[in-house]
């Protein structure tokens, strides 16, 4: 489903990704963990080309992008690649001038050219799925952070992406609201959606992930099942990170 081969990305003098390679199978949930600055968010943003990698290969669904120093992609190529992904942002980024249901309809109507009726039907069923059917006509400012993030998940799913990308989806939430978002994500993982999640929620990673990817210093240090990484690792960097996290 997703294969990344030798991916590089730098911002000015700072090299953030230094040759990342990994693969994620269809229907699996991969959780990327690692200290801040390790490149996990950048890697995720490269997957839908919000960041353009400098070098390397990304295969996603039935499309393969091979980027080298001189590559200049056309907007149409970027959009058609990106349409295979849906993204959930740390700060939700809902459209404030649209109601919850309109937020979930927008991509369907404008990008996929569905009729408004079809889009509304689908949007309402997605809101139902994230437990917000009764909040459909509210504006984002009328919703709690957890509710906004669940609308964000519905919005990302509305364009029928192959892969859902989550960029620290609970980091901006009050602690008591984290659970409702993680529950929706767990349900999606159990349904067999392909998901890539950047998060600091180790409990979620342990329970919901099929694959843990530990990044540090712009490279993948270790990957495996939750049991292999959390309980059986011998890698000193992984151990050091896990110790730090568990101290909290």
């Amino acid at each position: 489903m997703i294969t990344i081969d030798n991916l590089y990305k730098r911002f000015g003098a700072l090299e953030v990704l230094k040759g990342v390679s990994l693969s994620i199978e269809k229907g699996k949930t991969a959780v990327i963990i690692g200290p801040s600055g390790s490149g996990k968010t950048t890697l995720l943003r490269c997957l839908n080309l919000l960041e353009m990698p400098d070098k390397g290969t990304i295969s996603l669904g039935n499309k393969t992008l091979n980027v080298t120093a001189g590559t200049r992609l056309k907007q149409a190529e970027i959009v058609s690649f990106r349409k295979q992904t849906g993204m959930v942002f740390q700060s939700y980024n809902l459209f404030p001038h649209l109601t919850a249901v309109e937020n979930v309809m927008e991509g369907q109507v404008i990008v996929l050219k569905r009729s408004k009726d079809d889009a509304r039907k689908k949007a309402l069923s997605l809101l139902e799925k994230v437990g917000l059917r009764d909040r459909a006509d509210m504006y984002p400012f009328q919703l709690s952070g957890g509710q906004q993030q669940r609308v964000g998940i519905a919005r990302a799913m509305a364009i029928d992406p192959e892969v859902l990308l989550f960029d620290e989806p609970t980091s901006a939430l009050d602690p008591e609201l984290v659970g409702e978002v993680l529950k929706v994500m767990k349900d999606l993982a159990n349904e067999g959606r392909t998901m890539v999640v950047v998060t600091h929620e180790m409990k979620f990673a342990n329970e919901a992930a099929d694959q843990i990817i530990f990044m540090d210093g712009g490279v993948v240090v270790e990957q495996g099942t939750p049991n292999e990484v959390f309980n059986a690792t011998r890698n000193p960097r992984t151990l050091q990170f896990l110790n730090k996290v568990s101290e909290r």
Binding site: N48, L50, Q75, V79, R82, K83, T85, G86, M87, F89, S91, N93, L94, F95, E106, G107, I110, V111, L112, R155, A156, A158, I159
Partner: peptide, 22 residues
């Protein structure tokens, strides 16, 4: 905010669609 552009891009919009709609 840049996040609004990115959210629009993330649902498959082009730059001009993002400008006009969002």
């Amino acid at each position: 905010s840049k996040g609004q552009w990115e959210a629009a891009y993330s649902i498959g919009m082009t730059k001009s669609q993002a400008l006009k709609r969002i």
